[in-house]
């Protein structure tokens, strides 16, 4: 049976300052890829479903 050890508090401030990069490149990569994929999916819907379904208005 495992329990939660309260996290976060065990990190020393000076250590964190050394370890953290000035630019969160991982977040840019991961979130950027997710949003890029989102745009691609949207464009696929736009060009391959919406436009072929014809004009309305």
């Amino acid at each position: 049976m495992d329990t939660i050890k309260e996290s976060g508090a065990n990190i020393e401030e000076p250590a964190s300052a050394l370890l953290i990069q000035p630019v969160p490149s991982g977040a840019f990569a991961l979130a950027g890829a997710a949003v890029a994929l989102l745009l691609v999916a949207w464009l696929v819907m736009y060009f391959f479903t919406f436009l072929p379904r014809g004009p309305v208005g």
Partner: peptide, 27 residues
Amino acid sequence: WALAMGGVAAVMLAAIVWAGLGLHMNP
């Protein structure tokens, strides 16, 4: 990041406006 997101939104908006103006696809 916000600028990049603005760019994404602009692409979509441009496509929607084009569909509305150029292809007569409006609600």
